[in-house]
């Protein structure tokens, strides 16, 4: 007789077999007409620039990890929220302590600066505020004036 874990093992086996059979069958059946264009990296029709294998900022992993923790937290809290009244004060306290520990961890992370993102420095365009120099300008325009006359003839 199968144990409970044995049933899970059968499920895993079935899943693996299904995937392998599906991939193999589609390989047999599907039309495969690769061309150079088709195998190109997809970049919305643009010419692909550079390699798609680029480094990601390590901070993405921190954020992903925190997300995972709070995701799992919600999974645990939903059944707790449905049932804590049946367990009275002790049931409530268990959940509260769990939340407190998570909150403390979050606060620790925040305090340590792991949530700080290296933000890009934005340089707004600076428009030159130079004072208008009359002497120089009129001198240059005197030089340019000859071109103006030519323009006017045309």
């Amino acid at each position: 007789m199968l144990t409970e874990f044995g049933k899970i093992f059968v499920f895993i086996l079935l899943a693996a077999v299904f995937v392998v059979v599906a991939i193999f069958a589609s390989k047999l059946i599907r039309p495969a007409r690769p061309t150079k264009e088709k195998l190109l990296t997809y970049e919305c029709g643009e010419n692909p620039e550079g390699s798609p294998w680029i480094k990601f900022n390590i901070r993405f992993y921190v954020v992903a990890l925190i997300f995972l923790i709070f995701d799992v937290e919600v999974v645990l809290l939903f059944p707790w929220a449905l049932a804590y009244k049946d367990y009275g004060l002790s049931g409530f306290l268990v959940g509260a302590i769990f939340l407190l520990v998570l909150g403390l961890g979050m606060a620790y992370e925040w305090r340590k600066g792991d949530l700080e993102w290296a933000r890009p420095v934005i340089n707004p365009p600076v428009i030159k505020k130079q004072p208008y120099v009359k002497e120089v300008a009129s001198q240059i325009s005197a030089d340019d004036n000859q071109t103006v006359l030519q323009d006017q003839e045309i």
């Binding site: 599907r30 039309p31 007409r33 061309t35 264009e37 088709k38 190109l40 997809y42 919305c44 029709g45 643009e46």
Partner: peptide, 14 residues
Amino acid sequence: ATRIKRLFEQMPEP
């Protein structure tokens, strides 16, 4: 048009 052509060619048959 050149982009559309490439997108079309990147679609699998049929």
